[in-house]
Design a protein around this nucleic acid. Structure first.
Lengths: 219, 219
DNA sequence: GCTCTTGTTGTACGATCGTTCAACAACGAA
DNA sequence: TTCGTTGTTGAACGATCGTACAACAAGAGC
């Protein structure tokens, strides 16, 4: 009986988990490794250690390293786009307010984070030579582009008529560039300007877009 | 004599070269490997093969791999900044013409090149965890920032007085972001817009900067 | 023609990489 | 309580990595 009690109280050396949950833990560990150690953090052993599991377990849940990384990239992308969409939907219905919410979310945590840049940069470095990464990019970046395009469309629709009419395609290209560029600059050197200043620059760009009455720009 | 002639005509199996030239060849091979194979091209063996020399030679000219990569990064940075400066100096003296030349050089080869982005991205990925790369960045990026800042300064000085006065610091931040963002977008997806359109967007931004007479932006 | 310097080669070493796989153990079902 | 499923472990493999080093040879100086 004492033996039985001892055995009953004996804590298992490890716990079995559902595949879905374990997979997510491994994905989280992968991203954490990227944040901490950059490209060198992308080793199966480092990821297994970070997740607190053995090396061999990864290959039980993912066929190989590339698939794990692609899954982590997909998760990272989805979290960004979903976060931005949620911020926009929580904002008042006015197009300008929705756009402002988008800017604010873009220049706040967790998106505005030097560690996040470190993760992105490693993924970008794989883009050209990894068909898996390219596929994930295509499927998830679409949502981001569509969101921004929609906001610009309703913004221009509600504004007084412009002369000449705004080129929506070029407007989206320019605003995306300004957003990404500011985001990149801040992550590289957070001391160089405040997030509020970045938002101000973006707002000014949109102001210019909807208020302009001459043909000096965007043609 | 026949033997002597044969020996005399025997081509050396390899040629000795001055350290400076060999170092440059190794640096060029490093960048070429980055363009072709991305981060995976950064192996001593791949670089030696690309340069057409043996593996051991690299460590004769560079103390270790990190120093070689740092040297390649310095060369890559210097070529960019020197190229832009040369383009600006070749332009007419008018501030606006100098700025236009800067835009044109930014959105032309060899700077505007998806392969160049592949190289930059690998270097950026090392930035956070490599003190060597950080040092090189500090010493060479300075020239780029100063060049753009000077051009903006003379541009604003020659323009009619603005109300309120232009915040030169924020203007430089915004223009840099727009430039980098457009450059990045095009390298990721060259089909999405033409380089001339990117130049147009930058010109429009500068137009807005020097012509505006209301306080709606850049505050 | 000989010698000396040194740019260059080729091999070897230890470490670390991704992957495989047999054995183990947790835990629900019978 | 026993059995079967399967999530999990840990060791092992071959490949590749960066580095070190002894031997070689090209080319200048004498």
């Amino acid at each position: 009986m004492a033996l039985s009690a001892a055995r009953g109280a004996a804590k298992p050396r490890w716990e079995r988990q559902l595949p879905a949950q374990r997979r997510q833990e491994l994905i989280d560990a992968t991203i954490e490794c990227l944040k901490r150690y950059g490209h060198e953090g992308l080793s199966m052993r480092a990821i297994a250690t970070q997740a607190g599991v053995s090396l061999g377990l990864i290959n039980h849940h993912f066929p190989n390293k590339d698939e794990l990384i692609a899954a982590a990239y997909r998760h990272f992308n989805t979290e960004l786009v979903d976060g931005l969409k949620a911020a926009v939907q929580k904002a008042p219905a006015a197009p300008r307010a929705r756009m402002r919410a988008f800017f604010k979310a873009s220049f706040s945590r967790p998106n505005l984070d030097p560690e996040a840049l470190a993760v992105w940069v490693v993924f970008w470095g794989m883009y050209r030579h990894s068909p898996l990464i390219q596929g994930v990019h295509r499927e998830s970046y679409q949502g981001y582009v569509q969101l921004l395009r929609d906001m610009l469309t309703e913004l221009v629709r509600d504004a007084p008529r412009q002369t000449p009419p705004v080129d929506l395609r070029l407007a989206a290209i320019g605003l995306t560039a300004l957003l990404d560029g500011l985001w990149l600059e801040w992550c590289l050197e957070p001391a160089s300007f405040r997030p509020a200043e970045a938002i101000g620059l973006c707002e000014a760009w949109v102001d210019h877009l909807v208020r302009r009455t001459d043909g000096s720009a965007l043609e």
